[in-house]
């Protein structure tokens, strides 16, 4: 089965098979790294934890640790470069410097409001499908206020978000792009269809 579609593809475009080979190697490498990182239980907890710090997708996360006890204006000590300590991640600032950190990020004291709130917020976006296995993943989230990709995806980001290829992290957007939400291309492209059909 496999041989037959490869042969077919090779006949159509010999370059495609070479590219596929390269892609396959990368894909295997990615898979290995992901397995390496994936102590899956912890991943799940931290992933959910990160989302829970926001009122909705796009809201600034609240601060999950005491602040005033740490003294004033010291956010940068941990969040300038990013820091991992005893399994906890203090991500670097993903957005350019804007005024006071605490104009958007606020501490939470363990008290509950007297009045309940029934707001239902927007969920974090799901991962987007790749063009083919091994194709660079698309960026599923807004890039505004997230210009510094390495804050989350660099070596000091959350384990489940770290890039498998940290040496190539200077120009992330040359391979990973953000599809404009809700926009469909005017011309149908059959690549994905072919891919699905031959699988």
């Amino acid at each position: 089965m496999k041989r037959s579609w490869l042969e077919w593809l090779h006949k159509r475009d010999p370059r495609a098979t070479r590219m596929l080979a390269v892609v396959a190697v990368i894909a295997v490498a990615v898979a290995m790294v992901m397995v390496g990182c994936g102590q899956s239980g912890q991943e799940e907890v931290t992933g959910r934890f990160r989302a829970d710090l926001r009122a909705y997708y796009g809201a600034p996360p609240v601060i999950p640790h005491p602040v005033e006890a740490l003294g004033r204006g010291n956010c940068r000590a941990c969040h300038e470069q990013g820091l991992i300590y005893q399994g906890q991640v203090a991500v670097a600032r993903p957005h350019p410097y804007v005024g006071e950190c605490r104009q958007c990020h606020v501490e939470q004291l363990p008290v509950e409001p007297k009045v309940k709130n029934s707001f239902v917020g927007l969920a974090e976006p799901e991962r987007l499908p790749r063009a083919y296995p091994g194709a660079p993943p698309l960026i599923p989230h807004e890039t505004r206020m997230r210009a510094n990709c390495t804050a989350c995806h660099g070596p000091r980001g959350h384990p489940e978000l770290r890039t498998p290829h940290p040496r190539h992290w200077t120009e992330c957007m040359q391979c990973h792009v953000r599809p404009e939400p809700g926009v469909e291309p005017p011309v149908v492209n059959n690549f994905a269809t072919l891919w699905e059909a031959t699988r």
Binding site: A55, E107, Q108, P110, E112, P113, V115
Partner: peptide, 8 residues
């Protein structure tokens, strides 16, 4: 009445 702001 906003939990995040109340707790802050």
């Amino acid at each position: 009445r906003v939990p995040q702001l109340y707790r802050a």
